[in-house]
Design a protein around this nucleic acid. Structure first.
Lengths: 201, 201
DNA sequence: GTCTATAATGCGATAGAC
DNA sequence: GTCTATCGCATTATAGAC
């Protein structure tokens, strides 16, 4: 891929271009999902031709993979990755949910993509399956840490609560999208967590 | 295919034909969603041509509407519609969830369709928006009845619990589909309800 | 009531000029 | 790095024969 360099001027625009395409793809996948969202529409939004777009990502599947990877990196920013403190993790989760409320398009992407990826042959199926396992584990471990510190309510099972919190988050997003973003997901989630964690979050 | 029969007797097969098509459509929409599922594939499954299929339903959108209507009627069967007893409703809900566990394809349909219908211009958007409002109201009313009979836990708000139960159900379905149907959704839901309802379900 | 044929559109991907 | 042009295929819907 030739790229950058020497003879050819100084404008290594590729990274910016890729970023623009990723933003456009996110928008389109949010509205139409992966299967029905078209490369042409993404290309239009990014201000280039469909062929030009494929020059950067090769295929529609690889574009999807890049979008998901990119979002994961950004979402990581809401958590203190060096900490194993359970309460800190839960606070990070609430920060992430609060942030999501300000970017409904992003909520729509995950809602839409995760649902269509339940089909076994969907390009993102394995990604989402692994993601759910990973998140449940991190959350359960966090709750075990909360328990070790004496802040988990008697009788609450970390694995069960982890599953419930994740399910509740997903389900709330659907209702939130249908109800015109008219309630506060953070509040609902915080109230639920208060039923299992005995310290203020 | 000429079909059966002599000259062409009395066979008003239309109702059966429509039912076959609805079953096929459900299967295809479950695998691919509405937008990506094709009439041709549905027609193939129903053993007829795509044009023959459209003779019965006119358009893809109308077929979708018929599928949703049909499922709603069937789901009604799990509830005692003449009763306003809150506990009876909750038991009906658990029966419905238990039944759903035996038809994963059906769970996939609602999961997939409800997600893509979050887009405001989706043909089923209004249907799902109204459905969420309706179900939340019925459930909250049921919980108020439970409360009136003294079986709601102190401090539990019927409207909040209704939203949570619905969100939990939706979210659990996604995890259930990704995890290879490997846990018991009924058990999880019953355990959650036990946190708010003080009598055995 | 079902079919074949086809219209009209849209898709992802590739080839090749610049 | 971006474009135009195009291939090959799939889609929804309609027209008209039987």
């Amino acid at each position: 891929m030739a790229t950058t360099t020497a003879t050819r001027g100084i404008y290594a625009k590729t990274p910016e271009r890729r970023a623009e395409i990723l933003d456009a793809a996110l928008e389109v996948f949010a509205d139409a999902g992966f299967r029905s969202g078209s490369l042409r529409e993404i290309a239009d939004k990014a201000g280039m031709s469909q062929a030009g777009l494929l020059h950067h990502f090769g295929s529609k599947k690889r574009l999807l993979a890049a979008v998901l990877e990119h979002r994961d990196e950004i979402n990581m920013g809401f958590f203190d990755l060096n900490s194993r403190d359970g309460l800190a993790y839960m606070r990070g989760l609430l920060r992430l949910v609060a942030h999501n409320c300000s970017v409904p398009g992003l909520v729509e992407v995950y809602c839409q993509l995760s649902a269509e990826a339940t089909s076994a042959d969907h390009p993102a199926h394995d990604y989402f399956a692994a993601r759910y396992v990973r998140i449940r584990k991190i959350m359960a471990d966090s709750l075990r840490d909360v328990d070790a510190k004496g802040f988990l309510r008697e009788g609450s099972d970390p694995d069960e609560v982890a599953r419930d919190v994740l399910a509740l988050s997903d389900g709330l997003q659907v209702q939130w999208l249908f109800a015109g973003k008219s309630f506060d997901m953070t509040r609902v989630l915080r109230r639920y967590l208060a039923e299992h964690i005995t310290v203020e979050l």
